[in-house]
Simulated assay, not measured.
Amino acid sequence: MTTATIPSICVEPAFLDEVERALEPNESLASFVETAVRREIQQRQARAGLLQRGLAATRHHSAAAGIPAEKVIARLEAKLAAARQRK
């Protein structure tokens, strides 16, 4: 298997110092960057999956027969009226 290189980036010296201070013992800057990139990819994939599942659920629920809003509001108003009468 051949390997590829992630492009280098220019950062401010203060930020590079911050990154280097955050390195674990025996951790290289390259391994830190690779780990960070892999985690970001995993997060983006998870977010994309969540979005797809949410959209699919929305399509499913909007296609299903639900209770009309007017009926729900009428039931809530009836419950409120009953609660007021009990007081």
Rank of each mutant, 00 (worst) to 15 (best):
A48Y: 06
T2W: 01
K79T: 05
S28L: 04
A63V: 02
P25H: 13
Q43F: 07
I6E: 01
H61Y: 12
A83E: 07
E18A: 15
R84N: 09
S62T: 14
L76M: 11
E18S: 12
A22L: 08
A56H: 11
K71F: 01
H60Q: 14
I73V: 15
A74E: 08
R39S: 07
E77N: 02
K87N: 12
L29S: 06
A83T: 09
L50Y: 07
S31Q: 13
P13D: 10
A57H: 07
R86M: 09
R59E: 12
A81W: 01
L50V: 07
E18M: 10
R53T: 11
E18W: 10
K87V: 04
V72F: 00
A48M: 10
P25F: 08
S8P: 03
A83M: 06
E27W: 00
V33M: 11
A81E: 11
G66I: 00
E40S: 13
E34W: 03
L80D: 00
R53E: 15
T58L: 12
R44L: 12
L51F: 05
I67N: 00
A36L: 13
A30W: 09
K79A: 10
L23Y: 07
R21E: 07
E40I: 05
T58F: 06
T2I: 06
R44T: 10
C10W: 05
E40Q: 12
K71R: 15
R21H: 09
A65V: 08
L23Q: 01
C10P: 01
A82T: 08
E24L: 13
L55P: 02
K87I: 04
E18G: 15
R39C: 07
A63T: 08
C10I: 06
V19Y: 03
E70D: 12
G66C: 00
R86K: 11
R38Q: 11
A4G: 01
E27H: 10
G49C: 03
R75S: 07
